[in-house]
Nucleic acid binder design. Sequence first.
DNA 1: CGTGCTGTTGAGGACGATCAATGACGGTGG
DNA 2: CCACCGTCATTGATCGTCCTCAACAGCACG
Lengths: 256, 256
Amino acid sequence: MSTRGADVLDIDPATVFAARFRHLNIEDGNEVNAVLRIIRRHRGARRDEDVTSDANPPPPRSTIVLLAGVACWYKRREDGRRHILDFQYPGTFCDLQRCLLPDARDFLSLGAITDCYLGIIDYSDIEKILVQHPHVGLALWRSTMLDGSILRERLLNMTYRPALARVAHLLCEQLVRLEAIGISTRTLPFTQIDVADAAGLSPVHMNRTVQMLRSYGALSRDSRAIEVTNAQKLAKIASFDGRYLNMPALPPGWNA
Amino acid sequence: MSTRGADVLDIDPATVFAARFRHLNIEDGNEVNAVLRIIRRHRGARRDEDVTSDANPPPPRSTIVLLAGVACWYKRREDGRRHILDFQYPGTFCDLQRCLLPDARDFLSLGAITDCYLGIIDYSDIEKILVQHPHVGLALWRSTMLDGSILRERLLNMTYRPALARVAHLLCEQLVRLEAIGISTRTLPFTQIDVADAAGLSPVHMNRTVQMLRSYGALSRDSRAIEVTNAQKLAKIASFDGRYLNMPALPPGWNA
DNA sequence: CGTGCTGTTGAGGACGATCAATGACGGTGG
DNA sequence: CCACCGTCATTGATCGTCCTCAACAGCACG
């Protein structure tokens, strides 16, 4: 097992959830606790494992929250290659859509980027909490909207930006999102292939882009991993303006 | 005024809303009527006009629903070009995010593709209806998720598909979405530039792609407008599988 | 009956994909 | 402890798609 992303495993679910719900306008500790309490079952997933996919159908009438590790939503292209639509960080309700759109035929798979630790919530408990704590429902709705925000920006980023800025932008976003849940590592737990699949580049060109970023001093030359040495430079290359993330408190230095 | 898209103007809001809410799992006519009743003000927008943008801020503490016509969400690229993220059809709550994420700094603009007819709803009425009719809130949450579905598919489509399939796919989606609200026109109310901005292609290449589609018999040769003459051929070129739209009843012939 | 936007055509060039091969590292088993 | 093996990273060369620039045609509207 690689040790990539070890940092994202050392996480306390309660802390992460509290932070995330604060972002979603829930200050009330009782409501956060109510959410934590309905996570009654757990499971792990090894790096590169499919958490849910066509082959591994998810447990029926239950939904998954990511407690530790990094995961991703992806779709398979017709040529078999993986297209990563978004990365997921601890504190995320991964498949609420399955709960709210039970007939969804979206063909999305959830994959583990690093080793992950997951919580399982029964639909019945979700339904109860939505009734008992309407604010939780609103917060989750908000989080659905934030996902949309991220997707829209990614769409913009992928559609017209050249590889260098595109990759830089993608990396900036991941740094900010990690920072937002209290992880301020500079080493991202991705392989170049992961990033290529998320940036819509071939692995070969991805590698050349990484080397370009290294030569600009934005990424580390010494590490095989994706280690950001100069986030400010990276943000500049990307013209990164993180305000689309709609975080109540964007970490300083991340808006254009 | 161009007559492009005249069909989408001849629409009864009540019918469209009923259809859309049925898709969102609301069968109850009372709830639909409750939504219709809180649309107390209206306005029009001319083709190409910005409904909301940085320059035209939206009316405060109120949200917009599209009643007739076609609109689009777009972002400006740094080079000034317009990037269309999604098209909007009648029956859409256009900017719920502003209501739920009041601090959103997403820099999204809403533009009119054709002449549009819009309804305005006060936040206070939205808040009331969410309390009185929790199902309406759920339905709107679902619609947020469906938007996400569409965005994810678009991301996939734009990132790796070549121009021909990409444009074909985009057009197929619009046909299906129009059909779903009862408009089965074959003439789409877009200019080639509109489609280029949505497909992430230069207008020049868009034009060449359109001609290619014409030469395959998928689009009309005789019309300046984008007129689909052979939807099946278009779907084949696109490898279109509309199931991602998660429509309860996908019009026949639209799944691979 | 012009004026502007949209559509059309041609030529050249840039960016990124693909193919192919090699290197480097981590994990595994002898 | 070392040899092996698979995955990931790296490099070179070629090719195709799509962009850009530039010019012109045609339709729609005033």
